[in-house]
Nucleic acid binder design. Structure first.
Lengths: 232, 232
DNA sequence: GAGTGGTCTAGACCACAGG
DNA sequence: CTGTGGTCTAGACCACTCT
């Protein structure tokens, strides 16, 4: 055959698929199963590691290895506020940079108090000479924050975070909604009554346990499709 | 102090974060690095496996281990056409079940020809007595297809796929858009001019390399927010 | 051929579940 | 206490890359 531990993985997967072992079932002890496959426990454990990784089994130390119950609602989504747009970008133009006082929403999203100050950077993305995305970036005001300059200079927010190995220490969350844009957004996107995608994003610093940035992307519905798929 | 291989993982992560080793850099050979950490190569390799898994390094056999370049646009999204809705569901009512001829869009999405037949199942989800989601499920017509009955019987499409360990052999893709609903959708959702989320979903059978189902979920924008976050 | 990662073993000791 | 998984070792052999 091929590689031992892969063969074992395939064999166990098949047993699960064919119902020979069922979700929730306890597997044989590792030592025992290693013997029946005629391999060392180390090799068998390598197979198990793979199966755990792919969501087939899980382990409870001191008890044993169990077949997973299905979940399967988890998708992988790629999002980038520039690259995900359907059309070719002419320009990302800087609207303004301003220090603002936090309202309630911003205090929540940036985990700041009413006395803190916030830098707001606004941009518009153009495509075929038409504005299709309105970007608002909020950063906590810190003296000489190097990110501010980068945000002004570079079009793509994701790329900024990826420069300088910063991405290894951050976590990002997005939420995707349809909203009726307010007058401000409508003005900049030259919209009438159309609804837009609002993708809001929080960026966490894992190291300092604070929020590095809160962003809002208002995107004309015609110009974006988000795609996601299940893993494995 | 703690577990050896975890300490090594942390040490290497720190070296990457502090720029001691840079994206693209080749790491020391495994044997050599194992010696400098004073561990066996097996243990070191366990650390490396973790780092590969978390996206810090990658391996080229015969050459060596390299520090990854950042990507960081990958999010994890949970989607379930029932559980993701913001409000409490009253009912998921079955509208109709019908055998239909494929149009071009369906032929593409279900990978069928013009002579094949398709079963279409339509449902409406109610919340506070108001229709908020319009579900259309398309299944390739097969004599005695057991899925059809399940789709009619159960509200939640994801749950169907998860029953009977079916989920282990399928792959799902979704795409998320804003659309102006057509008259049909508008009628069932009792909408005027509002835009809706359209989440379309393809479900692949890994085993038979075919498409098990193509579904469309039209969801009133007020009643859903999709959340996603980066891994690790 | 020398050097790299990939696979595999046999055996040791530990921490934790459970009776 | 026994049995389970978790960690770790030292050493063997292979397949691959590069020169």
């Amino acid at each position: 055959m091929g590689v031992l531990y892969v063969d074992i993985v395939d064999d166990i997967k098949n047993k699960i698929l064919n119902g020979v072992i069922q979700p929730g079932d306890l597997l044989q002890p590792e030592t025992e199963m290693a013997n029946s496959y005629g391999v060392s426990r180390t090799t068998l454990r390598k197979s198990f590691a793979l199966l755990v990784n792919e969501g087939y089994i899980y382990t409870i130390p001191g008890k044993g290895n169990y077949v997973c119950k299905p979940t399967g609602k988890q998708y992988e989504l790629q999002f980038d506020e520039i690259e995900n747009l359907k059309c070719k970008i002419d320009e990302v133009s800087l609207l303004d940079v301003k220090v603002v006082e936090p309202n309630k929403k911003l205090m929540t999203h940036l985990m700041l108090g009413p006395l803190d100050r916030i830098i707001r950077i606004r941009k518009v993305t153009y495509c075929n000479k038409k504005p299709i995305e309105f970007i608002v970036v909020y950063l906590p005001y810190e003296k000489g924050n190097p990110i501010v300059e980068d945000v002004i200079k570079f079009a793509n927010f994701h790329d900024i975070m990826e420069s300088n190995r910063l991405h290894f220490q951050i976590k990002k969350k997005i939420s995707i909604e349809i909203v009726k844009p307010n007058d401000e957004v409508r003005k900049h996107l030259k919209l009438n009554e159309e609804y837009v995608f609002l993708i809001s994003q929080q960026i966490y610093s894992l190291e300092k346990n604070s929020i590095l940035s809160y962003n809002e992307f208002y995107i004309h519905g015609e110009h974006i499709t988000l795609n996601a798929e299940t893993k494995i």
